[in-house]
Amino acid sequence: MVNPLLEVKNLRVEFPTRRGVLTAVDDVSLHINPGEVLGVVGESGAGKSMTGAAIIGLLEPPGQIAAGEILLEGRRIDNLPYEQMRRIRGREIGAIFQDPLTSLNPLYSVGQQLIETIQTHTEMTYAQARNRAVELLSEVGIPAPERRIDSYPHQFSGGMRQRVVIALALCVNPKLIIADEPTTALDVSIQAQIIALLKRLCREHGTAVMLVTHDMGVIAEAADRVAVMYSGRIAEIGPVRQVVQQPKHPYTVGLMGSIPIIDQGDERLTQIDGAMPRLTEIPSGCAFNPRCTQTIERCFTERPNLVQVGQSSVSCWHHDREKTDA
């Protein structure tokens, strides 16, 4: 077995507020192997982006890591002082955010932003960094990069800007990229291109990706493994084929049922009744119990833990019981 690149152990992210402590991420454990694409999927507020922000050390205050560990190549990074964590950001863990229209500083040319990032993390001279920046732009498919390098963000289209953002995230070859909804803000026709580009570049550079999204299509397309999150917890995690074709957790089953399949005609999509509980109103026991159709008594009293079922891990009493009964 390979040593995982990134390991998250029992991560808990809390927001102390005036009305009590909100737990945005609760007891999340996952790992990412070198070069692997882990999809993280879930509804808005499920804690996917928070997990990503916690890994890169950029939780917005007052959010904070309340428990757990984050290890990069076996080294703990969740408790590093700001300056040491800054050196890891960009250099070892890159990030791509949702909206390419606002991710770039409008007052600097894309070249200035690339060169600045490269020079922050390497010893390159300005000329070397500039050459590298041109290379990167051509790698992410920007036409005429020698000329476009001096253009400003507003002179690019949304898709092109996301390419620039990808170039910025990849510019010093980090080992891991946290891509937080990288295609959500883009036109549908551009989404596939950007995902394909991200996938190709990461394969070429051997970069692992944590792909945060709420789009199962993107996950099925790009991910090796997938983690399904619900109310700050992992409901199910496993190889993407396994999770998509044989979902175990009732929530995942519902999610898969809600994806339209084109050749099945006008059959109605299944729908999960209700909405995800607010952080202030998470029920006891399994957080999914108000919407679950197969609840048993235990679901309301005790919280299920992740247990191995086949190649996946699931947190659901149905599967836990099967295992303990067997």
Partner: peptide, 9 residues
């Protein structure tokens, strides 16, 4: 936020 994520000082 992105500038911080790039590890700028």
């Amino acid at each position: 936020k992105f500038a911080r994520a790039r590890g700028l000082t």
